[in-house]
Design a protein around this nucleic acid. Structure first.
Lengths: 229, 229
DNA sequence: AGTTCATAGATCCTATAGGAAATGTGATCC
DNA sequence: GGATCACATTTCCTATAGGATCTATGAACT
């Protein structure tokens, strides 16, 4: 009695739209779908060998992340890359939200947070940093995990939503250009400072460490943008 | 040569999913769709006299706003109402984002902003404040417009996204209970203080005025929550 | 009487089909 | 030769149909 289904699907069966969502996210992240290029619903359905219906639903969800944009009757397009100015704006927005997250997370910081942050830093150290997305994906994943942990332990669903609202864009500046991670040593050092601040339990210190980190990221990314132009 | 279509649809023809989105948003806002109740895709399609496909797409978009939640194979439900603690969290999150918006908006505040803020305050004063949503809808609209203007003039798309990520929830605490606007006088006074700060052109003042306002909202809403329980 | 089973209904999910609009290509005409 | 028009293709958008799963009502059995 339905044992086969249980074995196949596990506790919660996967929905096809979720698969499409993941596939599109991957394609967007590693640049197979280039910025500005159109994303055809029917075409993507043929490519993924599904019907257009789940593709349509996955794209509707992706639109909220800012990765794709929709025009009324002309379909979806991959959102354009960030200009240097927009990159600076993104960092300014992070400077508003993430230091507050750090402050709050430090107050009711369970021991769990310290350990998980340390783990994320270790993963950063050991992850490869090559030029292709496949090579530095683990690095990006650990970086994203570190910051999201802080947002998570701030224990405020609305601040987490606000952080996530930035997330879709955060992912994209890392790989544009495909020259790999160039500031890993700086980032790791700054993350370690944040961890140390959490260990002291002083919220003010945690906030300041986060500010210093994001300012560092902003400065370095601006520098790279200038060199590229 | 397609003049009829131009006249009918204007510059950009409406898509059916957009209509469904608007209809659902209205139903959610004025409580016709109660918190916790399921939102059937097929049922809603019958009720609105469309096919399930556009309903599915509209719900996928709505999910990102936090108004509805989706469980894998069991459909959508209206998100539950905020508890007093969650309400406090929401205000804390606003205290992180909106004062920063006010600070930045004040720096490159065009004259347009002053006038539009004044208009929003005038609308607040003249709007009815009755218990039903239809009665205080104009009030809510003016309130929302005031805060979004500040976010808009901060001139940072990411901060605007972060503000919007809170927006879906902001809308919902206003009408739960249906006793109308009880703190209009306080709110109008605080908004006026913010406007005055903008007129001086001092970003620090604008920030402080916004902080004072949101703290006021938080205090008053907590008070109401206690009385209700 | 209480539990178990079966049937019916509702619902979600996916695929298919077809209409409408936009885009691209080739032929015709000045 | 260049512009215009007709046609085909692509694409979006919506509707319909059917399979799979969940829920609920009622019957049968211990």
């Amino acid at each position: 009695m339905r044992i086969k289904d249980q074995a196949a699907g596990g506790v919660s069966r996967q929905v096809l739209a979720d698969h499409v969502y993941e596939a599109l996210l991957s394609a967007l992240m590693d640049g197979r779908l280039e910025a500005g290029s159109p994303v055809s619903i029917d075409g993507m359905a043929r490519e993924l060998d599904v019907s257009p219906t789940p593709v349509r639903e996955a794209l509707a969800r992706l639109e909220a992340t800012g990765m794709v944009r929709r025009t009324a009757l002309r379909g979806y397009r991959v959102a354009p890359l960030l200009t240097p100015d927009e990159l600076a704006d993104l960092m300014d927005a992070r400077l508003v939200i993430e230091p507050a997250n750090a402050f709050m997370a430090c107050r009711h910081a369970a021991d769990g947070l310290i350990g998980e942050l340390a783990q994320a830093i270790d993963d950063l150290k050991s992850a490869p940093r090559g030029p292709s997305f496949a090579e530095f994906r683990a690095y990006w994943e650990a970086d994203e995990r570190f910051h999201r942990l802080v947002a998570l332990y701030a224990d405020n669903q609305f601040l987490l939503s606000a952080y996530d609202a930035l997330g879709g864009q955060v992912q994209r500046f890392r790989f544009f250009g495909g020259l790999g991670i160039t500031d890993a040593e700086f980032a790791i050092a700054e993350h370690t400072q944040i961890l140390k601040a959490f260990e002291t339990g002083d919220p003010q210190l945690a906030r300041d460490a986060m500010i210093a980190h994001i300012r560092g990221v902003k400065e370095r990314s601006q520098h790279e943008s200038e060199m590229r132009s």
